[in-house]
Write a protein that binds this DNA or RNA. Structure first.
Length: 580
RNA sequence: GGUUCGGUAGCUCAGCUGGUUAGAGCGCACGACUCAUAAUCGUGAGGUCGGGAGUUCAAGUCUCCCCCGAACCA
């Protein structure tokens, strides 16, 4: 048997913006699948580093702080803690949950800017931007509103007109006003900014993307589309106070940039690297991050997997790689990329600003994390947008978790407790029913592993469920309660296999529903070192049905999953406005 | 407007490079069982694979046109 060497796998999920607790759509489209994948690979025995962080810079953060009437720093501190807690409560197994406002990120962002400029990829240019006198600030495009020069729609945003759909330049708006304050006291001013000359990187990026043949179609097509349209040079600084200061290589503030910072678009992805530095420092090995990111220091052998919603694909396939490749330094680039569509909410989208949908903290007030994790994984928006419905959620929880898995564990452990003194029984010989079960596992377990490796999460969940369901079928075939009447040894085989199946079901459930899985495994007394999905663990499948030590004592767990009642669905539908 | 992705049983979805009677889960109907969270197991109900045309010995699976939906466009 070949024992494969542990791989080193770096996982990142798109950085949630600092502005408020994320909704279930955000969760399902990046953090959750990244977590499930990380857990799976750890259980395979690989060395996984899962990094995430809050994206804390930018105008929305400043304005939100202003609205809350607190200093920006305080606002982001508070919001970061809230999001960190929400992630922990959802059992997201980050190795580190960092912050893009860290010193590490500031230093690294400045470093990249210096290197890119030295390589001739950054230059200062003058641009014209709308300035709001009353707000005392330059307005980002979408914070300028006015009359569309094309269709005369009166509430066109500076970046695009919602009426005619045309892309706009905010300086072309008629009667512009500030969307921040409503003030019409705005004017166009000239301001100097750093531009990243993406156009010069066009060929390098195309070569790189065309070599990445195993990217999913969604990611590839988005990236190639951008390239086909031609990469544009882009301002990477903004007239703002909250962000990474623009410095010279010696650390002093760059002349003319005293009131400017880098644009979040530029510094946020760099935080993937910087957060790894934060992680390394926190664990007292300040250089440990380098072997994950520097290809000249060991990162060449790392598999780097990124998870994100489809809106982020362009930044990860084109924007960030321009920074990395343009630096001409040996940084790790993404190897595999998994993009998700949206979870929709009764015909529309989840929306943070409109408070549409269910948010992470609210969800956990209703039910434990595992319930949501299961539903959102089994119905992940992989192939297309996926509709969240309370009925679908109820059905997934009641049928898959309570009836198929929960009831299986319950029935076999209770029966063992009542007839075999709560001990894994001795005696008997495996027969036809066991052969059937083994054959099922021999085809299904490898498929399960393959689905995870392919990052097909819906299929992985479906296969997990099919294996659970096969356990119930097995018990029907083995029917120990019938055999018990005449042949206790024959019944013992079924109970023993059933208990071992329960253990196996807990083991394979761990990536998706870690809490319930742990309850099952604890109840059966499965030792930590056996809670693995490694190749060795699945090498001898017949042995899996007789793995628990005979005579070993088990205890039926408490109810693993409580069913969702129709009344609850009705109440939640009412409360969250689920019916449209 | 451009581009991309979808439109398959009541619902949610699988169906690589075209090839026997189009599949799964849920729901539904009927049956079985009783260890179990009225759980489980079995059987079934027969969907013009959005519409039209074409290529082919053969198309849900390729080509073209149309209709509907969604997303993206820095």
């Amino acid at each position: 048997m070949t024992k494969s060497a542990p791989r080193r796998i770096l996982v990142t999920s798109a950085l949630p913006y600092i502005n408020g607790v994320k909704h279930l759509g955000n969760l399902a489209g990046s953090m959750l699948p990244a977590d499930v994948y990380s857990r799976f690979q750890r259980l395979r025995g690989h060395d996984v580093l899962y990094i995430c962080a809050t994206d804390e810079h930018g105008t929305p953060a400043e304005l939100a702080a202003q609205a809350a009437n607190v200093p920006v720093r305080q606002y982001v501190d508070e919001q970061h803690e809230i999001q960190k807690k929400a992630g922990e409560d959802f059992l997201l197994s980050y190795d580190h949950f960092g912050r893009s406002c860290s010193d590490e990120n500031a230093a690294l962002t400045q470093h990249f800017a210096h290197v890119l400029e030295a390589n001739g990829l950054i230059e200062e240019r003058t641009m014209r931007q709308v300035y709001s006198v009353d707000d005392e600030r330059f307005l980002p495009d979408r914070y300028v509103e006015g009359t569309c020069p094309h269709c005369e729609f009166e509430k066109a945003r500076g970046d695009q007109c919602d009426n005619c759909g045309r892309l706009l330049d905010p300086v072309d708006l008629i009667d512009p006003y500030s969307a921040v304050s409503g003030s019409k006291n705005v004017e166009v001013r000239e301001t100097r900014h750093l531009f990243l000359l993406q156009s010069q990187m066009q060929d390098r990026i195309r070569d790189w993307i065309e070599a990445a043949t195993d990217w999913p179609p969604l990611a590839r097509s988005i990236a190639l589309k951008w390239l086909d349209e031609g990469l544009r040079d882009r301002a990477i600084t903004r007239d703002l106070s909250w962000g990474v200061p623009v410095t010279n290589p010696d650390g002093s503030i760059r002349e003319g940039f005293e009131t400017k910072v880098f644009y979040v678009w530029f510094d946020a992805p760099i935080e993937y690297i910087a957060a790894t530095e934060e992680w390394a420092k926190a664990k007292g090995e300040p250089e440990a991050w380098r072997r994950w990111w520097r290809t000249d220091e060991g990162a060449e052998e790392v598999d780097y997997v990124q998870f994100m919603g489809k809106d982020n694909v362009a930044f990860h396939t084109v924007g960030f790689p321009v920074t990395i490749l343009g630096s001409q330094e040996p940084w790790k680039l993404v190897d595999r990329l998994k993009a998700f569509n949206w979870v929709t909410w009764y015909g529309g989208k989840f929306s943070t600003s409109n408070k549409r949908g269910v948010f992470m903290d609210q969800a956990l007030d209703l039910l434990p994390a595992d319930y949501w994790r299961w539903y959102l994984t089994a119905n992940a928006p992989e192939g297309s947008d996926a509709a969240f419905t309370w009925e679908g959620f109820q059905s997934a929880v009641n049928s898959d978790l309570a009836n198929v898995l929960g009831n299986f564990v319950n029935r076999i452990t209770k029966y063992c407790a009542s007839k075999f003194d709560g001990k894994v029984p001795e005696g008997g010989k495996a027969g036809e029913a066991e052969s059937w079960m083994i054959a099922e596992l021999e085809t299904r377990l490898p498929q399960l592993v393959q689905h995870y490796e392919n990052m097909d999460f819906r299929k992985a969940a479906a296969e997990t469920r099919a294996i659970w369901a096969a356990g119930n079928e097995y018990l029907t075939k083995a029917e120990p309660w019938v055999k018990y009447k005449n042949d206790v040894d024959a019944a013992a085989v079924g109970v023993r296999a059933g208990l071992n199946l329960a253990a196996l079901f807990g083991i394979i459930a761990q990536p998706i529903i870690p809490e319930a899985a742990a309850m099952i495994l604890d109840a059966l007394g499965v030792p930590e070192e056996r809670r693995t999905l490694s190749e060795e663990a699945f090498a001898d499948i017949p042995a899996l049905l007789d793995a628990l030590p005979r005579g070993h004592e088990i205890s039926p767990p408490d109810v693993l999953f409580r069913k969702i009642e129709d009344e609850q669905v009705a109440e939640w539908t009412e409360r969250f406005g689920g019916e449209s």
